[in-house]
């Protein structure tokens, strides 16, 4: 294995330059290092001004997503040695505005996420005396896959549609809407459908499928969106053929 590798970081420091630029660092290669360890090495030993986000180092917090060699990945979950011989190019996630260096602004995603109501919606809460909402293993299985999402936004960075049309609600938010739609305790599917069956919702998706390829948790947002389309289509035909039953819950 090589002793060291060149890492090229796409830097953006608005107080110094209006445009981003590439900066090259030489870092040692250690077998057990992740890409994130190399960035930490740069920050600690070479250049303290480098800005990036990270927290858990174990692939669950979803904050260290970056473009490495043009692909969105969790930098804490990808071995440095797997990217040899280099130079390894590291950029901020695509599709989001860059605040500084590798740090993106996440407001747009956060707004879209809350707009799909990713929580259990009830028309009326069951009284406490009736106990908890019970669920069978099959009912859990119906949505479990979609509940694995860690909001790392790699799917947004992989999605060309989101980059082209920032109004698109996007893969993770739609997959999380499905996570609650398929939950037997939830009653909010109708409200979510009103929000999602719009041109900027599920219908902007053209099933490129890259979101599901890059997802580190195998959520399959692309599949979630297509299933939503099928559902919206059947509801549309029902409401056309049976106008009196339009708001049937």
């Amino acid at each position: 294995m090589a002793d060291s590798v060149a890492i090229e970081v796409r830097r953006y420091r608005p107080e110094e330059k209006s445009e981003p630029y590439w900066q090259r660092y030489e870092v040692p290669v250690r077998e057990e290092w992740m890409i994130l360890d190399a960035l930490n090495y740069i920050k600690d030993n070479l250049d303290g001004s480098l800005s990036y986000r990270w927290a858990c180092r174990m692939g669950v917090c979803g904050s260290c997503g970056m473009m490495v060699g043009g692909e969105p990945i969790l930098t804490c979950a990808s071995y440095l040695a797997d990217h040899l011989p280099g130079p390894i190019r590291i950029e901020p996630l695509r599709g989001f505005p860059v605040v500084r260096d590798l740090v993106n602004n996440l407001d747009d995603f956060m707004d879209k996420l809350t707009a799909v109501k990713p929580w259990i919606v009830r028309e009326q809460e069951q009284p406490l005396s009736e106990g908890e909402y019970l669920q069978t293993p099959e009912e859990l299985d119906a949505y479990k896959q979609y509940s694995m999402c860690i909001n790392c936004m790699l799917c947004y960075a992989a999605c060309p549609i989101y980059e082209l049309e920032p109004a698109f609600i996007g893969p993770a938010a739609i997959a999380l809407a499905q996570r609650y739609n398929f939950d037997s305790r939830d009653q909010g599917a109708e409200e979510r459908m009103d929000h999602l069956s719009r041109d900027e919702g599920i219908w902007a998706c053209t099933f490129v499928g890259e979101c599901s390829v890059v997802c580190p948790k195998d959520v399959d947002p692309a599949g979630a969106i297509q299933r939503y389309k099928v559902k919206a289509m059947t509801q549309w035909y029902k409401s056309m053929l049976l106008p009196w039953g339009e708001r049937k819950r």
Partner: peptide, 16 residues
């Protein structure tokens, strides 16, 4: 239902 698009109709033709 208000505000929902006609897209489901075209999508049904597209997919079939």
């Amino acid at each position: 239902m208000k505000g929902r698009s006609i897209e489901p109709f075209f999508w049904s033709l597209f997919s079939s």
